[in-house]
Each structure stands twice: as structure tokens, then as C-alpha cells.
Design a protein around this nucleic acid. Sequence first.
DNA 1: ATATATATCTTAGTCACTAAGAGATTTAGC
DNA 2: GCTAAATCTCTTAGTGACTAAGATATATAT
Lengths: 175, 175
Amino acid sequence: MSRTKARTALLEELEEAMRRSSAQGVLYGQTVANVAGIANSDLECMDILYLEGRVTAGRLAEVTGLTTGAITGVVDRLEKAGLVRRERDEKDRRKVFISVVPEQAMKIGQLYVPMQQAMEKVFGTYSDQELRLLLRFATEGYKGVLAATEALKSLLDTPPEKRPDLKLKKLRRQP
Amino acid sequence: MSRTKARTALLEELEEAMRRSSAQGVLYGQTVANVAGIANSDLECMDILYLEGRVTAGRLAEVTGLTTGAITGVVDRLEKAGLVRRERDEKDRRKVFISVVPEQAMKIGQLYVPMQQAMEKVFGTYSDQELRLLLRFATEGYKGVLAATEALKSLLDTPPEKRPDLKLKKLRRQP
DNA sequence: ATATATATCTTAGTCACTAAGAGATTTAGC
DNA sequence: GCTAAATCTCTTAGTGACTAAGATATATAT
């Protein structure tokens, strides 16, 4: 029992620490956007392009949750800034692929250097085996958050009065 | 040599995995705001209030990077929604403390349940010792990101032409 | 007491967003 | 093959959250 209690406390601490670091991660992103002089959504799209490579405008809308109209604006601004290029798909001429212009995008990438250095410093204190554990956690965590996002999105399609009443754990003590 | 190479590859994989999961975390937050019917910044402030407890309007501006004028709007909306309360500091009557209204805020908290469940499922596969490693990482990672944010912010105070290395195209009117 | 500093709010204007629908192209049904 | 429906992006009009600058109120220093 004392063992489970210790674990429960550990899990709570962990949840708060994760929440804090992820909140700070959001702030880092906002700062990058500020320094780069582009909108938050614009940077978010750059990030998606970096991770997924050449994607269509529609896919950007899908992933970001913005309307296609908003994406038109995002891509207009990014294209004007020379960060991305529009390329019509020759096979299906309705589609527009967006791809990054590496030379320009690299300037944005430089703004992540302070973050990378900080993380390298942290990673440096872990053994290979420990890093593999962190990798496993990051990978599984991603899948979990992805699934949770889908679960939550489905609530949007459910009328409020028909939403299953989610049981919430007791609200945390106020410091 | 082969050993260092393996570690470099591991670090790269780790960086990408972290980036992916944190991007998905951002999307989860956006979805929560959508479902709750409040603006992103409003939710961000709720999160800060949850983590820091009763804070002043000025502190919210400081942490979020928004102007005090914007925070007035945020608090107006949150107060109207019954999620927070304004309380003048009796010791220094210029200050306004913002505090959450737990009963209402809990409704927002419920939207984090899918996420918490997903994470609990993930955490369930780790031993206490492994969880402590994750906690150490989250704590150190937070400090690292915080420091990196400060480092990056200092670039904002440096005139663009004097910034080391970076010569970014001016995309938006700079403050 | 006066001046300066601090904390929040107000105002005017800007920009990114949504909703709705137009335009262009592809796919399906006959 | 031809028409209708579906798909993908862009356009337009209107809305709301944001910034900058300054107003207001209170606190601190000289």
C-alpha cells in the first residue's frame, strides 16, 4: 500500500512536470515565431512541413485544424517570405503541394539552436540505455496524445447534452 | 567510433520524437480550447493559473508574452465565462489577482481526461525506477527549455542587424 | 508635497481567422 | 462520352483577439 501510494505521488509529480515542460515548450515556439516575425500558425505549418515533407494545402488544414481559407493565407505569407513554394500536382491539378525552401527555412531553423543546445546538455547526462528509454517514452507518448486528440475531437461532433460525463480526478490543491 | 555514431543517431531520433510529441501536445491544447469554446490564450492562462495558483494580471502578461491590454481582454472573457474571478489586492490596490473558480474550471479540466488516461496507460508500462528517470528528465528538460527561451528572447532586444549569424527577412512590422 | 514608478484598463487600428460559396478539376453513373 | 456529383483550393465579407499608446489609479522616493 505504501508502495502504491509512493507510485501515485510519483505519477502526480510526473504529470505536473510534463505539463510544465510542455507549457514552456509552447512558449518557446511563440518566442521563435516572434523573433522570426511570423504568425504562430505559420510556424506551426513550417514545423509540419519539416516533419512530413511535401504536403498538400488540404493536409495542412487537416493537421492544424484550420480552415482551407486560413491555410491559403498561411501559405501566401510563407511564400511571400520565401520560406515555402507552391507546386501544383501534375497528376491531380486541383491539388497544391507545399514544400519548404531549405535555404530560407534554415534561418528559422537557427532559432531552434538554443533549444537544441539546451536539450543536448540534458541528454548528455544520460547513458545510451537511458536515452533509449526516453525514446520509447516519447514515441509511445506521441501515440497516446494522438489517440487522445482524436478521442477529444469526437466530442466536437457530439451534442453537449449527449456527451458522456467524464469523471475528473480531484482538482489539484492550489499552491 | 561506431559507438558514438549510434549515439548520434539515437539523439537525432530522440529529438524528432520529442518534436513530434510536443507538436501533438500543442494540437491537443488547441482542440481543448475549441471544445471548451474559448480562445487559445484564454486556455493558456487557465493553465498558468492552475500551475501557479492566484496570480496578478501583470504576471500573466509576463508569462504569456502578451501585452497587459490583451490580458485585460483574456480575463474579461474568462470572468464572463465564470472560470476566474478578479480580486483586488488589499495591500496594493493597483494589483488585481486572478484566481480560478474551481467548480467551473473543473469542466475545462474534464477535457484533459482523455489525455490523462492516455498518459496513465503509457506510464503503466514503466517501473517506479523508470518513472523517476522520466521525472528527472522532465524536470531538467523544463529548466533547459526555460533557459533557452530566455536566451532566445534576448535576441528580441537586439536590433536585427546586430544579431549574431541570423539575418532574417522582415515579414511583419516589428514592435 | 511633488515627482516618479508601477499596475491595470481603455481606445483605435491591424491582422489572422471563420463561414460560405466560387472556380477548377476529377470521379461516378448512365 | 457526357452530365452530375465530389473534391480541392481560393476568394470575400465580417468578426474578434492582438498591439501600441496613453489614461487612470495607486504606491514609493526625494
